[in-house]
Structures are given as C-alpha cells and as structure tokens.
C-alpha cells in the first residue's frame, strides 16, 4: 500500500477525544437506566454484570486494534490502543469495586474468604492483578524505562483475556447457560488466531 494513503499519527490522534466519549457509552447508559428505573429489581447485580460485560467488550476492542491495522493497512491506528486498554481497565475496576461493595460490604476479610471459596472469583482476581500492572505501566515513562521488557510484560494481555472469558464461563457454569461466554470466547479465539496466523506467515 502506498505510504501516501497511510494515516499520520497526528490524524489518528485527532480521533481520540471522540473515541473517549464513545467509550463512555456504558456510563451514559447506566445513568439513563438509573433515571428511568431500568436497572432491574436488583441494581447491584445488574451493575456488577454490566461492568463485567463492558470490561470484556473493551478488552476485545483493544485486542482488535492490531488485526484491524493489518487488515486495512493503517499502522497508525495503534495510537488508539492504549486508550481502549485503559477503558478495559476502567470497567474492570468498576466491576471489582461493585463486587467489593455490594457483595462483600468493603470487608477485606470477607473478600479474601470469597477469593478462597469461589473459583470464579479466584480466576477473576488472577486476571485483575496483571491488568493492574499493565495499566500502571501504560505511560510513556514506563514504556521507555522497561524497554524491550515492556512488550513482553504487555503480552500478558492474552492471558488476561483468556482468564476473563474463563471467569465469565464459570459464572454461567452452574446454570449451564454458556451462549454468551462461548460468543466472547469465540471472538477472542479469532483475535488470537489472527496473530498466530501472521506470526507463522512471517517465518521464512
């Protein structure tokens, strides 16, 4: 593809404020539902689930950036990836806070007990810890400081995504209701398979 058709980093960056406002859609929606009585009879449950789903969606969008760049030949799109990743983190934090407050009443002892008692909470916690590390090291300063280790560290996003889908699958396991976890799992599998495909093709 001729380089003239390539979007410049500056051009892509101009799109960032709009993406930021778009990525806040779930937040507008929650306020709208709260104002119109749409948070169901069990708002805490609704919000814990909703934040979890949106965290997964944002994570999927983050992982879609690289395949999309390759597909449409616009490498500068990488400029949007960090923001999407941080939105995945933002919704995950809300999800974790929702659990900590509504499920565990801010009691640290009770949170620990829950992690020990429920496999899906443990899996979710294990997914959250590296996500915290990725969010903290997402700044230019940390990218510079970590050098080539930065990319290695940030490859853990694949593990985080897999753990997140597993967490979701475990939530639904008792009800044998797997349609949604399978859908998210399939999307994730495609996004990861595209990377494997590219890596294999690059080899001589």
């Amino acid at each position: 593809m001729p380089s003239a058709a390539h979007w410049q980093a500056r051009q892509v960056a101009r799109f960032k404020p709009l993406l930021f406002l778009l990525a806040l859609y779930p937040v507008y929606r929650w306020f709208w539902l709260a104002a119109t009585g749409g948070l169901t009879a069990n708002p805490p449950e609704f919000l814990i689930r909703s934040t979890g789903i949106w965290a997964l969606v944002a994570l999927g969008l983050t992982l879609a950036v690289t395949p999309l760049r390759r597909l449409i030949g616009q490498p500068a799109l990488v400029r949007l990836r960090r923001m999407l990743g941080l939105f995945a983190f933002f919704y995950t934090v809300l999800h974790v806070l929702g659990w900590a407050f509504w499920e565990r009443g801010w009691s640290v002892a009770s949170m620990w007990q829950d992690i020990g008692q429920r496999t899906f909470i443990l899996v979710g916690t294990v997914a959250f810890i590296p996500m915290l590390a990725l969010a903290l090291t997402s700044t230019q300063g940390w990218i510079r400081r970590l050098g080539r280790h930065w990319q290695r560290l940030h490859r853990s996003v694949y593990a985080i995504a897999a753990l997140s889908v597993w967490h979701f699958w475990l939530v639904r396991a008792g009800k044998n209701d797997f349609a949604e976890p399978y859908a998210y799992g399939a999307i994730l599998a495609v996004l990861l398979a595209l990377r494997v495909f590219v890596a294999v093709r690059r080899k001589p």
């Binding site: 009879a41 509504w102 499920e103 829950d114 008692q117 429920r118 899906f120 475990l170 008792g174």
Partner: peptide, 22 residues
Amino acid sequence: VDHPRWSQATERRIGTSFLAPR
C-alpha cells in the same frame, strides 16, 4: 451451608435501596 460457588450467609433484599447492605 454455602453453595459451592457462593456464600449463603447473607442475602440481598430486593426492592430496598441499592446502597442498602446485604
């Protein structure tokens, strides 16, 4: 006696304020 996947010690009373504790 907990459910294998969650505690049965407390419950959420439906219809109370969403800031109400369990």
